[in-house]
Amino acid sequence: MKRLNRREILERMAAVTGGAVSLAVLGACDADVSVPENTDELELKALNKAQFDLVGDIADTIIPDTDTPGAKAVNVHFLIDELAANWMTAEEREGFLADLTALDERIRQEHGKSFSELSENERGQMLDQLGAEMLAAEGAGEYETGLSNVGVGGANRKHVYKELRELTIYGYYTSEVGASEELIYDPIPGEFKGCIPFSDVGKAWSVG
């Protein structure tokens, strides 16, 4: 399926609606809103370098490159830095960053090196271990579960791996690659068919 950029979507809408989409709106969507290609010069907004490397390589171990780019290649770690800076409350951010530092230190203690320096096998084992801890903590009701876009934050912080998983998966499947190459994104379906063979679609919709 051909992917449409926002300008094409609006132009197609203009065709349907008799050309009534304004030029101002069309102009606005030429602005590049994605993360610049040269990420070396981007300043981090919340994470320090060690936290950023940890987040990037954990994200990339959860969602690696396959026939489509993985989490790191689509800059999920930059989005997580953004979300820590601009989405979390100050209290949540403080807790999240402290958790990341604690996790980084723990990995260095257990392995004598950082997560990024682990082999692919060691990374996988580390995530298996964190996953088991996360599920055990949830089973014990130790942490809040479920996404909340509204909470005031604070009480019952999530297990740091749970938080990282949610941010990674959210970031990846709302990225252009994750939403429209790995899965399918249809900006203007044009019709609703309530029950069709899955083979007619072939992959999961990224926006339900």
Binding site: R6, C29, V33, L79, N86, G171, S180
Partner: peptide, 10 residues
Amino acid sequence: GMAPWDLPNN
């Protein structure tokens, strides 16, 4: 018409 990745903080 904005895709998820077009919106601030996705």
